[in-house]
Design a protein around this nucleic acid. Structure first.
Lengths: 156, 156
DNA sequence: TTAATGTGTGTGTATATACTTATATTTAAG
DNA sequence: CTTAAATATAAGTATATACACACACATTAA
């Protein structure tokens, strides 16, 4: 492609082409749009979709530190640190100093467990909506592709 | 699935299963991880990937209002309003009152155009990295799936 | 043992995101 | 023509996100 003479016509054309092709843009846009879908589903529990995800990650890694949890989430530790505070304020998780006193170990509270119990059917409802929209196979492929993309490192 | 007796074992199991299956979580995680990839690519221009996307959207919709722009981006108007201010502060876009004095019409500045000219090869570099990682066909399918998902409306 | 180095987490700052509410302006009802 | 309803945007508030830096604690080297 030649980018040197960008008149009004070329810009329009390029905008459409890159908008359709850009993986990052389309990922973010779809995530934005689905976000509302998830948030509405969990709204009766006062949860956002993001918070449900984090709560489930804590459930699967009981007593993990911020650093340990941040790995599978692909999230900055500082980001995770702040997101955990939100769950803590809601009474869903506890944060306790580890033997190494720099570490903070995160666990579910009883309330956290019971909120998960109520949230899981709502999550499953959304999941089934998405599957019925795209079909099981396309969803499976999509998840595999997302996983492959998330393994990309700088320097590739 | 039965969610009523959630002991430690079931929680771990459920966490893994929902984490692997959840479209929203995997979309967000991949978007998080790719974000760094894009941001590093555009760093020489002082741009984030998100800002490049928005700049390209402005390029393709010259003189559009906030409301008009928000449609193809799938973004809240209030969000877009704030994101545009960032580009305006960088001198990349202008914001002008429309004939309808409630409207704000957004256009590229000359600097905006020249930044796009420099950014496009960088974007293409990232795009080619992703394609070489997943292959053209999987990328194409992924984009199609993302598009299908973004058409999901509440009530489906 | 003390000093240097390394590690885990939180804070400061900035952006991205959305919902609710406020404000200005336009359009429609009467 | 005046008032009520509708519309476009911004501002208030909250969360999600990341980078740079600070701080406390731990480990290693001297």
């Amino acid at each position: 492609m030649e980018f040197s003479n960008l008149d009004q016509e070329n810009l329009k054309e390029l905008s459409i082409r890159t908008g359709n092709a850009c993986v990052g843009f389309n990922l973010r846009r779809t995530a934005r749009l689905l976000r509302r879908f998830y948030d509405e589903a969990f709204e009766p529990l006062g949860l956002k979709g993001t918070q449900f995800s984090l709560l489930m990650a804590v459930a699967g890694n009981q007593n993990a530190t911020i650093g340990e949890l941040s790995q599978p989430l692909g999230m900055e530790r500082s980001t995770l640190s702040r997101n955990i505070v939100v769950l803590q304020k809601k009474g869903l998780v506890t944060v306790e100093e580890g033997e190494d006193r720099r570490q903070q170990r995160i666990s579910l509270t009883d309330l956290g467990v019971s909120v998960i119990r109520e949230a899981l059917p709502l999550w499953q409802g959304v999941q089934e909506s998405l599957i019925s929209e795209l079909g099981e196979e396309r969803i499976t492929n999509l998840l595999a592709d997302l996983l492959s993309l998330s393994h990309i490192k700088e320097g590739n």
